[in-house]
């Protein structure tokens, strides 16, 4: 998984820093869990252990394990090991960001239209396909999903102005 330890000139965040960040995030998560458990009570009530009893101890264990992970991230990982090169991370973001936009606009434009754009975007941008093929796939696939889900299996998915325009 982590083959990209060399070629320092490309640069990137260090494995140590990312691991420390993850461990810190988990500490934060543990604190949220502990606070939430305290809110509903962690003792023994009329109904046996209260609702927060179990998550409270789970939170404590996450806290303890993450602190150890944090210390080990400092102690065990060589400082020069990279998490990933910036160029690779850019690639990852090039998937995450369009997908995030896709998810964000879903409720407004409907899942079918958004999917068509997402598929078209990926095919053009990553695959550099011709427009004819892009049009065929990016329209054909949502259409197939529409038929399977809405028409055949009767599962309603989010729809937007275009579907309304077509009276679907």
């Amino acid at each position: 998984m982590a083959e990209n330890t060399q070629s320092a000139d490309a640069g990137g965040p260090s494995q140590r820093a990312v691991e420390a960040g993850v461990a810190l995030g988990m500490v934060g998560f543990a604190l949220v869990v502990i606070v939430g458990s305290l809110q509903v009570g962690i003792g023994w009530g009329d109904e046996g252990p209260k609702a927060g009893f179990f998550p409270f101890y789970v939170g404590l264990i996450i806290f303890a394990a993450s602190v150890i992970n944090l210390l080990q991230a400092r102690a065990r990982i060589a400082g020069e090991r990279l998490f990933a090169e910036w160029s690779a991370l850019r690639q990852v973001l090039s998937v995450v960001i369009p997908t995030a936009i896709y998810v964000a606009v879903l409720p407004w434009v409907g899942i079918y239209f958004a999917s068509a754009v997402l598929i078209g975007f990926f095919m053009r941008w990553l695959g550099r396909y011709g427009w004819a093929l892009i049009a065929a796939v990016s329209v054909g696939v949502p259409l197939a999903f529409f038929l399977v889900f809405e028409r055949w299996f009767l599962v309603p998915l989010p729809k937007g102005p275009i579907e309304n325009l077509l009276g679907l």
Binding site: V95, T99, Y102, I111, S115, L118, F121, F122, F145, L157
Partner: peptide, 16 residues
């Protein structure tokens, strides 16, 4: 580049 967006769409439908 074709299958990745398809998987993303299928995942989104599944989650929804």
């Amino acid at each position: 580049s074709i299958i990745a967006p398809l998987i993303l769409v299928i995942c989104a439908i599944g989650a929804y």
